[in-house]
Lab assay of single mutants.
Amino acid sequence: MGFKLLSKLLVYLTASIMAIASPLAFSVDSSGEYPTVSEIPVGEVRLYQIADGVWSHIATQSFDGAVYPSNGLIVRDGDELLLIDTAWGAKNTAALLAEIEKQIGLPVTRAVSTHFHDDRVGGVDVLRAAGVATYASPSTRRLAEVEGNEIPTHSLEGLSSSGDAVRFGPVELFYPGAAHSTDNLIVYVPSASVLYGGCAIYELSRTSAGNVADADLAEWPTSIERIQQHYPEAQFVIPGHGLPGGLDLLKHTTNVVKAHTNRSVVE
């Protein structure tokens, strides 16, 4: 069995187990497998329904001669939608809004960016022009300005110390501490036991640490421990890039980060 097929099978099995364990909360999309990078042309966006009122959005972007996937989250909030992270750029984010209108038909009224990198804030200006209120932590807003990236308009308070959590509509926002970046936030959907790890969490097929220019490698494993301790009931975990899975993604990420750190020390 090929690795790609095995990865998709694991996603399907995880979703099936969740649907059985929580039949009222989960209505997993039966329309197909989780979209992969090879299936999404740059400039297009796919939506994948995880649970009743919960979707991931998947886009792709060219970077350094390669094409990478990027995940975000959409959560229903009454007759409105909360968006977590842009679709990595203005063109993708405009396509995301169009796809949401086509498939869901509810307005996106608020959006949260989970850290300051372009795959999370690139497209904020498109959201703002569409009347979406954009939010991020003060740290993310400051770092985005320093980096020359787009800056969300509103500040999220109460997320300055490791372990801080605040309720934001249908989700809980959690600051686990520094990891992929010093400002990275985690998003949890309690009604569906869905954990969105953003770039602080890796997919299972990833074996290298990737972009760690703004990471705190020493603190990252401790931050992941905080996530595990705060959300032990999480059933569906979405990484910032690639295929979702279960809580095993947290341990896998820790292993990859520690291996990278150990290699760096040896070198």
Rank of each mutant, 00 (worst) to 15 (best):
A178M: 12
V121S: 04
G240C: 00
V54E: 03
F168Q: 03
T182G: 11
D52V: 11
A21I: 08
R142N: 13
D79W: 12
L143Y: 10
H115N: 02
R226G: 07
S62Q: 13
G43Q: 11
G122T: 08
A90V: 12
K251I: 05
S22R: 07
H115L: 01
I100P: 00
R46Y: 15
I50H: 15
A129H: 15
A178C: 04
R128H: 14
D183G: 02
Y34S: 15
E147I: 15
D214F: 10
A178G: 10
P170M: 09
L250C: 04
T253E: 01
S205W: 06
V45N: 15
V42Q: 13
E33P: 11
S205V: 11
A259I: 06
P35A: 09
G169S: 04
D119L: 00
V45I: 15
E145R: 12
A136E: 03
R110S: 07
T60L: 14
N184T: 02
A59H: 14
W88T: 00
G89L: 03
S205F: 07
L96S: 02
P239S: 03
T109P: 12
A21L: 10
H180K: 00
Q229D: 05
L96Y: 00
A90E: 12
Y188H: 09
A130K: 15
M18Y: 09
I50C: 02
R226S: 13
T253P: 01
S31D: 07
T93H: 03
S113N: 15
V112P: 03
H260C: 08
Y202G: 04
K8E: 07
V42W: 14
A234Q: 01
V108L: 15
S223D: 02
M18N: 12
Y196K: 00
N92L: 05
G122M: 05
V212F: 11
S22A: 13
S7Q: 06
F116D: 03
G245M: 01
T109M: 12
E233Y: 12
A87E: 00
Q229F: 11
Q235N: 05
P176S: 04
R263T: 09
P69C: 06
K91A: 12
D214R: 09
V189C: 01
L156F: 13
G158E: 13
S139L: 10
F116C: 03
L82N: 10
V45W: 02
R46G: 12
Y34A: 13
T253V: 00
L97Q: 04
L204S: 11
Y68T: 14
A144H: 04
L247W: 06
G198H: 00
A94S: 12
S137H: 08
L9C: 10
V266N: 06
Y135G: 01
L250A: 03
D77A: 12
Y34T: 14
A259Q: 10
A87L: 03
A179H: 01
H117V: 00
V146S: 12
E267T: 15
P138L: 11
I58T: 08
W220V: 00
A259L: 09
V132T: 10
P152N: 03
F174P: 02
Q228C: 05
V212T: 11
Y135V: 02
A111Y: 12
S137W: 08
G158R: 12
F174A: 03
F3G: 05
L6V: 09
L106D: 14
I227S: 04
L204R: 09
V187S: 04
N149I: 15
E44G: 12
P107I: 09
S155C: 13
E225K: 06
V108R: 02
L6M: 07
G53M: 10
H252E: 04
E33G: 09
S155R: 11
H260N: 07
P152I: 13
V256I: 10
V189K: 00
T261F: 15
Q49W: 09
V189A: 08
T261I: 06
R142M: 13
